[in-house]
Amino acid sequence: MGRLWTLLTHVHSLAGPVVMLLYPLYASVMAIESTSKVDDQQWLAYWILYSFLTLTEMLLQSILEWVPMWYTMKLLLVTWMVLPQFRGAAFIYERFVREQFKKQGLVRGDGEHSHAGARNKFVHFVLPKKGAHEAY
Rank of each mutant, 00 (worst) to 15 (best):
F91A: 08
P24I: 04
I32S: 04
L55Q: 02
G16A: 14
Y50L: 15
W66F: 07
Y93A: 03
P17R: 03
L64Y: 09
S36L: 07
W47F: 07
V18A: 15
Y71T: 14
V19F: 06
K129V: 06
A135F: 01
A90L: 08
G131Q: 07
L106Q: 03
M69Y: 09
S114K: 09
P24C: 05
Y71H: 11
P84C: 00
Q100M: 13
R108W: 06
T79E: 02
L8E: 06
D39R: 13
H113C: 05
L64M: 10
T79M: 09
M58H: 04
W80G: 10
L44F: 10
V123E: 11
G131L: 07
P68S: 15
S51K: 03
Q104K: 11
A31C: 06
F52D: 06
I63T: 08
A31L: 06
H113T: 10
G105T: 03
L75W: 00
L127H: 05
K130P: 02
H124R: 15
E94G: 09
N120M: 10
L83S: 05
H12R: 15
D110F: 01
A135H: 05
L77Y: 02
S51Q: 05
R119D: 12
M20H: 12
S28R: 01
G117L: 01
V29Y: 02
A89C: 03
H124N: 15
V11T: 13
E57D: 10
A118W: 02
A15P: 05
G16Y: 10
P84I: 01
H124Y: 03
A135Q: 14
T79F: 13
Y26S: 08
W66M: 07
M1Q: 06
R98C: 06
F101W: 10
D110V: 04
D110M: 05
H113V: 13
S13G: 06
T56Q: 08
G16Q: 06
W66Y: 07
M1C: 03
H115Q: 11
G131R: 07
V82M: 00
T35C: 04
P68A: 13
L44M: 14
L106V: 03
Y26Q: 10
R119M: 14
H113N: 09
P128V: 06
Y136I: 11
A27H: 02
G16D: 09
V97H: 00
Y26G: 02
L83A: 08
M81P: 02
I48L: 12
Q41F: 09
A27Y: 02
G2M: 08
Y23M: 12
W80S: 06
E134I: 09
L127R: 11
